[in-house]
């Protein structure tokens, strides 16, 4: 069966969805991503959907699931590059993807992830500092 490739970029994973996904392919991606987050200890996941022409409730639900699962595994997921027509349609469909981070493109998504991880990093540093003080 086809699989959507997952690239590793430092502590981030990058997935570019370029095909008209059928439902099983979407489910496989969900499985693969959660496995890869664990094995690669990734801190962030970027899902680039700029070439997706539609997002229906099934794919929408998959994006939501990936975000929640990433969070459980200690990572953050960002969905980037949703096309205007797709966004308008999703809202009309009644799907607002609450709890899913979004960014305009991969670069902005990367900045967003760095901010999240940076914040966490500072937090953990101050945790280390505390007992010494």
């Amino acid at each position: 069966m086809d699989r959507i490739p997952i690239l590793t970029m430092g502590q981030f994973l990058l997935v570019t969805i370029q095909v008209d996904m059928h439902d099983r392919l979407a489910m496989a991606l969900q499985d693969d991503l959660t496995t890869r987050i664990t094995t690669s200890r990734a801190k962030g996941v970027l899902i680039d959907i700029s070439s997706l022409e539609i997002v229906d409730s099934f794919i929408g639900r998959m994006l939501g699931n990936i975000s929640s699962m990433a969070r459980v595994l200690g990572a953050e997921a960002v969905v980037v590059g949703m096309q205007p027509a797709v966004a308008i349609t999703l809202v009309e469909l009644g799907l607002s993807l609450d709890g899913v981070h979004t960014a305009l493109d991969v670069e902005k998504g990367m900045q967003l992830l760095r901010r999240y991880i940076g914040a966490e990093f500072e937090e953990s540093l101050s945790d280390v500092d505390d007992p010494e003080n």
Binding site: V91, T102, L104
Partner: peptide, 12 residues
């Protein structure tokens, strides 16, 4: 609200 929601989905 719909406009705001759509913009948010795109990352704005």
């Amino acid at each position: 609200l719909k406009t705001v929601a759509a913009a948010r989905l795109m990352g704005a």
